[in-house]
Amino acid sequence: MKIQTTRDDHLIAWLAALAITIHIAESALPSPLPGVKPGLANVITIIALLMFGWRTAVWVNLLRVVGGSLLIGSFLTPTFVLSLTGALASLIALGLATRVPGRGFSAIGYSLLAAQAHMAGQFAAAYWLFIPHAALLNLLPLLMTAALLFGLVSGRIAGTMLQRMTYRTALPPL
């Protein structure tokens, strides 16, 4: 049996694979604070968003979360739940951000929003589902600061990558 795949499927798979690679590489990095990671896979989501539209970004990001967790072995564990909540929050933020009229956001703005929404979503899940302790709120400003910084960094990376990429074909937005 042969499954028909479209060009879009390949594209999504390709981007998702990249994102998963980054995701896994990052998960092996030591982290100064739990919950603080550069979130470089965010770069791929932003590139997918800007080159191929929000729907592609959704696919790529969700595949990253599911695929990445399967490979790491955290599928359906609390880590996965946190990761998924973060991804969903950032996708919702990006979806809303694409509706901004005019020139709208560039890579850095999208990345900033995505990173912060990701952190906020993840924190909310951690707080409500796992550790509903008031003192945990003390961490929130630090976590959001980290999200802001990493959002700017990965936005910068995504912007540079987009600039250097040569568009061999002009793909219509999906």
Partner: peptide, 13 residues
């Protein structure tokens, strides 16, 4: 991770 979080939480608190 949760343990670290709790530890930091306790420290902050």
């Amino acid at each position: 991770n949760v343990a670290t979080l709790l530890l930091i939480t306790a420290m902050l608190a």
